[in-house]
């Protein structure tokens, strides 16, 4: 009805993008931020080895880029994958700048002299090792692994985001997993193969 605004929460992502060209621009961007900010913050944290400050800055930059480049969005495609494509490119640029210091949550300070006397790793220790192993991956392997198992995207979506064939995505995921398990075994050689069993 004329004069009544449609509730912003009822808009699809793609419709919100269209609103960025209108007077409801700020409202639409705020809604998109509310929907995805935490998710992409998680993505940036995983890709920047847990650098929180950097990740928060990247989230802010990401939404400003969405605002600036919304006219480039292809309405026949999904907003979600388009947003992650921008986020992935930002991470790549960030890697080129080699600006990743401040690894948080103790990943560098991991105590490799953990007492494994009970021949069994507890879940917390395993996760700390796993985190280090993932952070040691090459950027293109890490990106594929993070999108697949942490962001829970399909191979097809990842292919769209990184603009590579699905076969390449599968290959990167497979070898990323292989490298992680190799790294885990290198951390604790005596545990290799048979002791990564969570109690």
């Amino acid at each position: 009805m004329f004069g009544l605004k449609k509730d912003i929460h009822s808009f699809t992502d793609e419709a919100l993008i269209q609103l960025l060209s209108t007077r409801r621009c700020n409202e639409a961007l705020t809604e998109i931020h509310a929907r995805y900010s935490k998710k992409v913050l998680g993505f940036f944290l995983r890709m920047t080895k847990g650098n929180r400050e950097k990740s928060h800055d990247l989230v802010q930059d990401l939404f400003l880029r969405i605002l600036e480049k919304h006219h480039l969005f292809d309405p026949t495609k999904r907003f979600y994958t388009w947003m992650y494509a921008i986020a992935s490119n930002m991470v790549k640029s960030s890697f080129r700048e080699k600006n990743h210091e401040g690894i948080e949550e103790g990943s560098k300070a991991f105590d490799f002299h953990h007492d494994f006397s009970d021949n069994r790793l507890d879940r917390e220790v395993f996760q700390r090792l796993l985190k280090v192993a993932i952070e040691q991956l090459e950027e293109h392997h890490r990106l594929a692994f993070v999108l697949r198992y942490m962001e829970e995207m399909s191979v097809k979506e990842i292919a769209e985001i990184i603009e590579q064939p699905e076969g390449t995505v599968k290959s990167r995921i497979f070898y990323a997993t292989k490298k992680i398990t190799q790294a885990l075994n290198e951390f604790i050689p005596e545990q290799a193969g048979q002791h990564f069993k969570l109690s």
């Binding site: 998680g42 847990g50 996760q127």
Partner: peptide, 8 residues
């Protein structure tokens, strides 16, 4: 386990 390694 990779899903749970970062608290967001």
């Amino acid at each position: 386990e990779s899903k749970a390694i970062y608290s967001v």
